[in-house]
Design a protein around this nucleic acid. Structure first.
Ligand SMILES: [Mn+2]
Ligand SMILES: [Mn+2]
Ligand SMILES: [Zn+2]
Ligand SMILES: [Zn+2]
Lengths: 139, 139
DNA sequence: TATTAATTGATAAATATTATCATATTGAAA
DNA sequence: TTTCAATATGATAATATTTATCAATTAATA
């Protein structure tokens, strides 16, 4: 989301918002609110944690980002609002994009009257880094 | 999980465990820890919330249940440990099983070195109950 | 029945998120 | 530019969920 789009969404152009959006732009790490807060604190020491949450919620409302519920411990944020899938490392919780368009048809008789509007696939696995650490230790 | 299997897993047969397992047996609602606690309290007033969490974690370790991370607010528990997919109502968070075996192939070049061990599809939608409530009100 | 290792339950602590609200800032209008 | 109202921020409290601690209890075995 650029300055143009922020205004179009009826949002004020604050330094905090710009810092958060700047941090998220092209970010593929799916950071948590705390990740974002800590990263920005270094260059923006007056940033409040509450503002991070406020801003993320505002951006989500406007459809500029999405909230991921993949990590059981905390919400993770994705600056790419377009539907795509994810691969998560069971060990370190690293999240990677999977851009593949699967055709997931659900026959009417399995919908139980639901109106389906979307889907999201979580792939589970072990990342290369964790695999290395694991080989050479037990369990 | 029946009495037989509990013993085989090296677990003691306590009334609390039996109550929780009994509540979960054939339960298709994917209840939260609190749901489980409240339901059992009625018939088992000495049950502690900590015991619910302890028991659920023990059962998960033993592979008897699975923890779902579909609901952003809280963990939900599924007495069916076999892989299957879910359909969640965006409005009321009701969760339904989807038993369909999709073949989700990920080409090597999109795995980024990950070793993929499983997957889980979340379908999003609106349940019949919520659809009814929505027709007749705005937003 | 005695023993002991596992389990429970009370409670504190940790973690993550949301709410509150006085103060500050933005953007538009004058 | 200055003024002003709506919006946003930041400090902090409150809430919600989950995990940790540990003394007391209980299940299973001998
Ligand atoms: Mn993503
Ligand atoms: Mn299920
Ligand atoms: Zn990893
Ligand atoms: Zn619903």
């Amino acid at each position: 989301m650029d300055r143009q789009k922020i205004k179009e969404a009826g949002l004020k152009l604050t330094p905090q918002r710009l810092a958060i959006l700047d941090y998220l732009r092209d970010n593929l790490e799916h950071p948590s609110a705390e990740d974002i807060y800590k990263a920005i604190l270094e260059r923006f020491p007056t940033m409040s944690f509450a503002t991070v949450y406020n801003t993320l919620e505002t951006l989500r409302e406007k459809g500029a980002i999405q909230e991921l519920t993949i990590d059981p411990q905390k919400k993770r944020f994705d600056p790419n609002p377009r539907p795509h899938h994810h691969l998560i490392c069971n060990r370190c919780k690293k999240i990677l994009d999977i851009h593949i368009d699967y055709q997931l048809h659900v026959p009417e008789e399995k919908k139980n009257g639901f109106e389906i509007v979307g889907n999201h696939i979580e792939f589970y696995g072990i990342c290369p880094g964790c695999r290395l650490k694991m080989s050479g230790m037990q369990s």
